[in-house]
Amino acid sequence: MQTLPKSQLLRFVEEAFQLAKRAVARYSSKFSKHRYTLHQHIVLPCLKVRKDTTYRTLLDELIEMPRVRNAISMTKIPAPSTLCKAFDRLDMAVWRVLLNLSVSLLPTNGVVGIDASGFDRSHASKHYTKRTKLTVQQLKVTFSIDTRANAILDLHVTTTRKHDTQIAPSLINCNAGKVGVLLGDKGYDDQQIRAMARESAVRPLIKHHEFSSLQKAWNARLDTGLYDQLSQSETVNSRLKRKYGVFVRSRC
Rank of each mutant, 00 (worst) to 15 (best):
Thr82His: 06
Lys126Ala: 14
Gln229Pro: 00
Phe12Leu: 01
Leu10Asn: 08
Arg69Tyr: 07
Ile114Gln: 08
Ala124Leu: 14
Thr224Leu: 10
Val141Met: 12
Asn237Val: 10
Asp88Tyr: 01
Asp189Ser: 03
Arg89Ala: 09
Lys30Asn: 05
Lys178Asp: 08
Asp146Ala: 12
Lys130Asp: 13
Ser213Tyr: 03
Tyr27Met: 10
Arg194Ser: 11
Glu199Ala: 14
Ile114Phe: 02
Gly110Arg: 10
Lys243Trp: 01
Gln137Phe: 04
Phe17Asp: 09
Glu61Arg: 06
Asp115Trp: 01
Leu183Met: 10
Arg131Trp: 13
Val94Ala: 06
Val97His: 04
Ala201Tyr: 09
Ser104Gly: 08
Ala20Cys: 06
Val43His: 07
Ala23Tyr: 03
Thr135Tyr: 01
Leu58Pro: 05
Glu234Lys: 06
Phe87Cys: 10
Ser238Tyr: 14
Leu10Ile: 12
Val236His: 11
Gly118Trp: 00
Ala168Phe: 05
Leu171Ser: 03
Val236Gln: 06
Lys162Gly: 04
Ser29His: 11
Pro5Met: 08
Leu155Tyr: 14
Ala124Pro: 03
Ile63Gln: 15
Ser117Ala: 11
Leu171Met: 03
Phe31Lys: 09
Glu234Val: 01
Thr135Cys: 13
Thr54Lys: 00
Val202Gln: 02
Tyr36Asn: 08
Leu38Tyr: 08
Gln191Asn: 05
Ser29Asp: 09
Phe143Met: 05
Val246Asn: 07
Phe119Leu: 05
Val141Lys: 04
Pro80Ile: 02
Thr132Lys: 12
Glu234Thr: 02
Gln215Trp: 08
Tyr188Leu: 15
His34Tyr: 04
Lys243Val: 08
Leu90Gly: 07
His34Asn: 09
Asn175Met: 11
Ser212Met: 13
Tyr188Asn: 03
Val112Trp: 02
Asp88Lys: 11
Thr135Ser: 12
Asp120Met: 13
Asp154Trp: 02
Lys76Met: 13
Arg161Ile: 06
Lys21His: 09
Thr147Val: 11
Pro169Gln: 12
Phe17Pro: 15
Pro169Trp: 08
Thr75Met: 12
Phe12Glu: 00
Asn109Ile: 11
Val141Phe: 08
Lys6His: 15
Ser144Lys: 01
Gly177Ala: 09
Ser29Arg: 14
Leu44Thr: 11
Thr132Tyr: 15
Ser238Thr: 15
Lys130Ile: 07
Pro169Gly: 05
Met65Tyr: 05
Val179Met: 11
Ala124Asp: 05
Val236Phe: 15
His34Gly: 08
Thr165Met: 04
Gly110Pro: 13
Ser122Arg: 04
Ser102His: 03
Asp190Tyr: 05
Arg242Val: 04
Leu90Lys: 14
Ala16Met: 11
Lys241Glu: 00
Arg56Ala: 06
Asn109Gly: 15
Ser122Asn: 02
Leu205Phe: 06
Pro204Met: 00
Met65Val: 03
Gln229Trp: 00
Ala168Leu: 00
Ala25Tyr: 10
Thr57Asp: 12
Asn219Val: 13
Ser233Leu: 14
Thr158Ile: 11
Pro169Leu: 03
Asp164Tyr: 02
Ala124Met: 13
Phe17Leu: 05
Thr82Lys: 07
Leu155Pro: 00
Pro204Ala: 00
Leu101Glu: 04
Asn173Gln: 10
Gln191Gly: 09
Lys33Ser: 12
Ala201Lys: 13
Lys140Phe: 02
Trp95Leu: 01
Asn109Cys: 14
Ile172Lys: 02
Asn219Ser: 03
Phe247Ala: 15
Met1Lys: 06
Thr75Arg: 09
Ala149Glu: 02
Ala168Ser: 07
Lys51Arg: 04
Ala79Gln: 08
Val94Phe: 07
Leu62Trp: 13
